[in-house]
Design a protein around this nucleic acid. Structure first.
Length: 486
RNA sequence: CGGGGCGUGGCUCAGCCUGGUAGAGCACUCGGUUCGGGACCGAGGGGUCGGAGGUUCGAAUCCUCUCGCCCCGACCA
């Protein structure tokens, strides 16, 4: 008895409790839930099938939204000639330190070095210059799903790896207003996606100049708050103005017959969203997945009693088929190697939103036993009501996860009027701190140096408020959201 | 890139200080009994100790270099 208790404890410690070490908890979850594994290449990870299944759901849900807003998919090359990168000054300076180079092909030195794309603005811009001649060619609304490479010094699975997967939208427009409209449309799309599908509340807002994309006119982001109180940039949408159009000569003849530069945008979200998902909803038992993106929304665990393959299993299969028929993603775990208790723990670790247990007792009653991952609430569901109750439960879980995350954010967001309040807030319970800011990069730098906090963004629709900068006490008209960030 | 820590079967780790030729738990394979919150019994398989070099009769253990991972900072989705 004593021995088995010790064993149990030993097993549980395979996942470090969040309170003990959040970073280790995160890495433990990634490994134990088989989302990803380290590869032989420094800084690069292998996304395992279970992790990739989450990404496929994210892709599907986003891609539908892109298509619905008139975008089409295309594919641009992985390699980009050095000379193209050099065309936009700010862009080069921003990305050069992170670029991977190809200098040889086979055993021949290349005439012109190639870079492995860290992002595709320059190659896309080059092509758009060829494709756009008239105002009638606009807008161009293209997205691509791709991998990109950024030579990072410090990497963490999903959050920052040398190679990662993402989507990057690139659009070109006739007017500045249209480009801005597109940038904002995508920002709103990202926010709606994150909140509805990932059940992850985000703050949508504009980045400060020092945090904007290299070469952009201005950048918007969605910012989420992780379970340890640190912020994570979960998506960005850039208005590139005419910067890239000028550098790459994307020109067209306008309605007024004059030659003009197009107005372009770019926007993206990456596999980092999987990291965000883990750190937004996960707990000490492991992953907690929102039903909308969970590879398995329901897991059925049969209770093997007696000749269960004749008595219990057929019912399990019938339930699986019934639920699959109405579009629920179901996993029936009928393996014989492990006990039901083992399966409960394992599928909880993998974040499956809803578990159905089916044993002789349930079959007698014409019901199944259910257990929610988010609240651990258990209930008996009459077999006849499964097709109504399961989707309703999944929706309830989805809603609850969002509500819970939103409440967490609210209780971890404070407002600081003075520097004393600001630094106290940053030293105390981590989270967002809202404060007046004068608009100067110098203040941002000082704030970061002294508290590690960065300006995440200035939320959309923020009213102009006259105030004093929390750092320099100079005149301020905006309130910005600050946090320690990933 | 700076500071610190760690690399020993798939995983977590002991052994290292005080060199003598590798061990535990879990996982895995086979057989059996089990199964409503990580079951149990029995029998097995698997590592040359991150890599390279050195010291030594002898190195997981000592020395040097190197690679990787983790944490904390500076830079970034």
């Amino acid at each position: 008895m004593h021995l088995s208790e010790q064993k149990k404890d030993a097993f549980v410690t395979e996942i470090t409790p969040q309170s003990e070490d959040f970073s280790r908890w995160y890495l433990d979850v990634v490994r134990r839930a088989e989302l990803a594994d380290y590869s032989p290449v420094k800084g690069c990870m292998v996304i395992r099938p279970y992790g990739y299944a989450i990404w496929e759901n994210i892709q599907r849900l986003l891609d539908g939204r892109f298509k619905a807003t008139g975008h089409v998919n295309a594919y641009f090359p992985l390699f980009i000639p050095e000379s193209l990168l050099m065309k936009e000054k700010e862009h080069v300076e921003g990305f050069a330190p992170q670029v991977a180079w190809v200098t040889r092909g086979g055993d021949e030195e290349l005439e012109e070095r190639l870079i492995v794309r860290p992002t595709s603005e320059v190659i896309v811009g080059t092509m758009y210059a060829k494709w756009v001649k008239s105002w009638r060619d606009l807008p161009v609304l293209i997205n691509q799903w791709a991998n990109v490479v950024r030579w990072e010094k410090v990497t963490r699975p999903f959050l920052r790896t040398t190679e990662f997967l993402w989507q990057e939208g690139h659009t070109a427009h006739e007017t500045a207003d249209e480009a801005e409209e597109e940038t904002l449309k995508i920002l709103a799309l990202y926010k709606e996606f994150a909140e509805r599908e990932l059940a992850m509340p985000v703050v949508d807002g504009v980045k400060s100049d020092s945090e904007k994309f290299a070469g952009a006119s201005h950048t918007f982001s969605i910012e989420a708050l992780m379970g340890d109180g640190r912020a994570l940039q979960a998506g960005t949408s850039h208005n590139l103005g005419q910067n890239f159009a000028k550098a790459f000569e994307i020109q067209f003849q306008g309605r007024d017959k004059t030659i003009q530069h197009a107005w372009t945008t770019s926007w993206g979200v990456s596999t980092r969203l999987i990291g965000a998902l883990i750190m937004t909803h996960g707990d000490d038992s492991g992953l907690v997945l929102p039903p909308a993106v969970a590879p398995h929304q329901v897991v059925i665990v049969p209770i093997p009693r007696g000749n269960w393959k004749e008595t219990v299993l057929p019912t399990c299969e019938a339930i699986r088929d019934q639920l699959t028929a109405i579009g629920v993603r179901v996993k029936l775990d009928a393996t014989e190697e492990n006990s039901p208790g083992w399966k409960y723990a394992e599928w909880e670790l993998r974040g499956v939103p809803l578990r159905l247990e089916v044993g002789p007792k349930d079959i007698e009653k014409g019901a199944v036993f259910s257990a929610r991952r988010d609240t651990r609430e258990k209930a008996s569901i009459p077999m006849a009501e499964l097709q109504q109750r399961v989707p309703a439960l999944l929706q309830a879980i989805q809603d609850n996860l969002f509500a819970r995350a939103l409440e967490f954010r609210q209780t971890h967001t404070s407002e600081a009027a003075t520097w004393a309040e600001f630094s106290a807030a940053m030293e105390g319970r981590p989270g967002f701190v809202i404060a007046s800011w004068c608009g100067s990069a110098a203040c941002e730098t000082t704030i970061k140096a002294e508290t590690q906090a960065t300006l995440r963004n200035i939320p959309m629709g923020s009213p102009r408020v006259e105030g004093r900068c929390v750092k320099c006490d100079g005149p301020s008209t905006v309130k910005a959201w600050f946090a320690k960030a990933y």
